[in-house]
Write a protein that binds this DNA or RNA. Structure first.
Lengths: 194, 194
DNA sequence: TGTACATCAGTGAACGCGCGTTCACTGATGTAC
DNA sequence: TGTACATCAGTGAACGCGCGTTCACTGATGTAC
């Protein structure tokens, strides 16, 4: 192989992180093997340990980068309360439910994260806190901490709703659940219905 | 081994189902091997296929029996709206969070269920519907279908909340999340705070 | 300018291990005579 | 009442397979002379 500049190694690592994010969200943490993850990134299994010391370290790094990306996406929406409404509507859309690989890591992996190492869970917690803070500060810029509880509960409702909607075999029922939770999320957040 | 009556086979099957339920909720579906599951039931790996034709069939049977048990537990609470309040408080208690093995199968396994066979997901859906119906009929006996949406959203919120509370490494934050969701579940359900 | 060498990201075969599954066997009991 | 046999839940070794991980090797390039 070519002798590359320093930035090449970084780029490969980032590529693994991103394709692993998609694979994990599609097939689960336990359901995704190293060989598959590397093949997704256009590499072979052996190269893995040049970038990560173990699968657990990869999981930790992926979780961190997935949540960071989610925060960034959220911040890119309309400013203020309008952006919160957009978030809720996108999150609870049939499109999000039907495409776990490109969706929210919490919705796809939360109960597997529950069983992860403390390091991975710490990665998760810091991302969670940032999202909750961002919702809160958009709702009540003058006193965000007063609505951190609602923000967290609504986020939990959205995560639970998408998971359930994915589990239900009856599409009509699954769609109704998304619609109902959208309504109630707006209600709890004190937002106007679109 | 002894030559037993017909009821013995049934009892053994039930014992496997129950211990597998606990193990699955503790270590996940993928994280629990046949040898471990059988050892939990006081048997050896080989005996498994005398009771189930595959691991997938076991998962389906366990999910069905777990949700059935949950419905039964719910029905055993105080009648009417009081029982719904009890359900919310028990579900969102630190005790439930800290003991996944004896807790709700949705909270422990929902995003793994998402990736299961359609049979297993159908088992899940029928249990889910029964729980939602039971909440709805207790809230508004005269017209349960009018509140099925709230019931479903609140159930989703409870599931998401317990999962998150389990993932968070900061116990104080985890406890605050449970408390906040209890408040907002009561609010959505139109129940008085205890 | 041309050649020998150092670099190092990536290769691919191999490791021991636990997985889901199969199967020949065991052995305590109820039944037949 | 005593013995031979049928039953069948459960045993435990073995199957091929994919897992996470290791490692000797490759080969295209930049650098040294």
């Amino acid at each position: 192989m070519a002798r590359y500049g320093k930035e090449h190694r970084e780029e490969t690592r980032k590529r693994i992180l991103e394709s692993a994010g998609r694979r994990f969200k599609k097939d689960g943490l336990d359901g995704s093997g190293i060989a598959t993850l590397m093949s997704d990134a256009g590499l072979t299994n052996g190269a893995f340990y040049a970038h990560f010391s173990s699968k657990d370290e990869l999981v930790e790094a992926v979780l961190s980068e997935q949540l960071q990306a989610q925060v960034a996406d959220f911040k890119a929406l309309s400013p203020g309360r309008a952006g919160v409404a957009e978030l809720v509507q996108m999150y609870l859309s049939p499109d999000h439910r039907d495409h776990p690989a490109s969706g929210c890591p919490s919705a796809a992996l939360l109960d597997e994260i529950t069983r992860c190492s403390e390091g991975a869970r710490r990665s998760y917690m810091s991302g969670f806190s940032e999202i909750v803070d961002e919702i809160a500060v958009r709702l009540v810029p003058a006193d965000p901490s007063s609505v951190r509880g609602v923000a967290a509960s609504v986020f939990a409702m959205m995560v639970g709703t998408v998971q359930m909607s994915r589990a239900l075999t009856d599409r009509k029922l699954a769609d109704e659940l998304l619609a109902a939770s959208t309504r109630h999320a707006f209600e709890l957040l004190g937002l106007d219905h679109a």
